[in-house]
């Protein structure tokens, strides 16, 4: 790692101020950023640790019935505390990485990084969640802008994520066997407004909604409704773990499994 200073603010206001320093970078749980720093793929001069900010942690349901999760909440906490409210989301959180990673990694960090194979972006997009930052609220449809790219401005912090709670939902991922990241992951959420289907791991453009499947499932929520539907492989990721056509095929299979498992 290149040398850097570390700042440990305990309030959001102090964190925002610290991120105003030149070449400052926010540090969530560090489960992606620290390995990145070790490989010298990033060289911030100041790292602003967000893990000491109590006001950014916690899981609660607000008056509007939205599940509100602080940006600094770990996957392990979401797995436990969201289970009673939104089991599909809690189940997703309980299968990210491994237990020790889940005790550090945070939902805000995952969404800010927007790794094309991360799990949380699929949940946020399929749920129609709102990403709350220190300056504004961004709908998930506007937030994700491509691989490792989001609507966040320089120095903007994900302070909270607000999830509408669907009637039924399910996330199924096909794990890349070495890294355990999603080779393809599909989140299906059915609510009164219809069905949303978000796919992670597959596309060169990052997480995306599969609109044909959404239309089919909105008229009939069954595995059979997906018969004959497929996604084009043109924009799919191709690497040694799977070709573009393989990933496109997996999108269909994972979507069917998610519909079958939705509860």
């Amino acid at each position: 790692m290149y040398a850097f200073e570390i700042e440990r603010p305990t309030t959001l206001a102090d964190a925002v101020a610290a991120l105003g320093r030149e070449e400052a970078q926010a540090l969530g749980g560090g489960q992606t950023l620290i390995p990145t720093l070790k490989q010298r793929l990033a060289m911030p001069s100041v790292l602003v640790s967000l893990s000491g900010i109590a006001e950014m942690r916690g899981v609660s349901v607000n008056d509007a019935g939205l599940l509100c999760i602080g940006g600094g909440t770990t996957h392990g906490t979401v797995a436990k505390e969201a289970a009673a409210h939104y089991p599909g989301l809690a189940d997703l959180a309980s299968h990210i990485g491994d237990p020790a990673v889940r005790n550090r990694g945070t939902i805000g960090g995952s969404l800010a990084n927007n790794d094309p194979s991360a799990c949380y972006p699929a949940a946020a997009l399929a749920s129609g969640a709102t990403i709350v930052t220190n300056t504004r609220e961004i709908t998930a449809d506007d937030y994700f802008q491509g691989m490792f790219t989001t609507a966040l401005e320089e120095g903007e912090i994900v302070t909270e994520v607000k999830f509408p709670i669907p009637e039924v939902s399910c996330y199924i991922k096909f794990e890349q066997p070495a890294s355990r990241f999603a080779l393809v992951g599909v989140f299906v959420a059915k609510s009164a407004d219809g069905v949303r289907v978000a796919v992670t791991g597959a596309s060169n453009n990052g997480v995306f909604r599969w609109s044909e499947a959404e239309a089919a499932l909105s008229s009939e929520f069954s595995v059979g409704a997906l018969d004959g539907l497929s996604v084009a492989s043109d924009d799919m990721i191709a690497d040694l773990h799977g070709s573009a056509a393989y990933r496109a095929h997996l999108v269909g299979v994972m979507t069917k499994r998610a519909v079958a498992g939705a509860k």
Partner: peptide, 14 residues
């Protein structure tokens, strides 16, 4: 809580 001490900074354990 179990954590990987190679993927956490000492300063974060304040």
């Amino acid at each position: 809580e179990a954590v990987k001490s190679c993927t956490m900074f000492a300063a974060e354990a304040e």
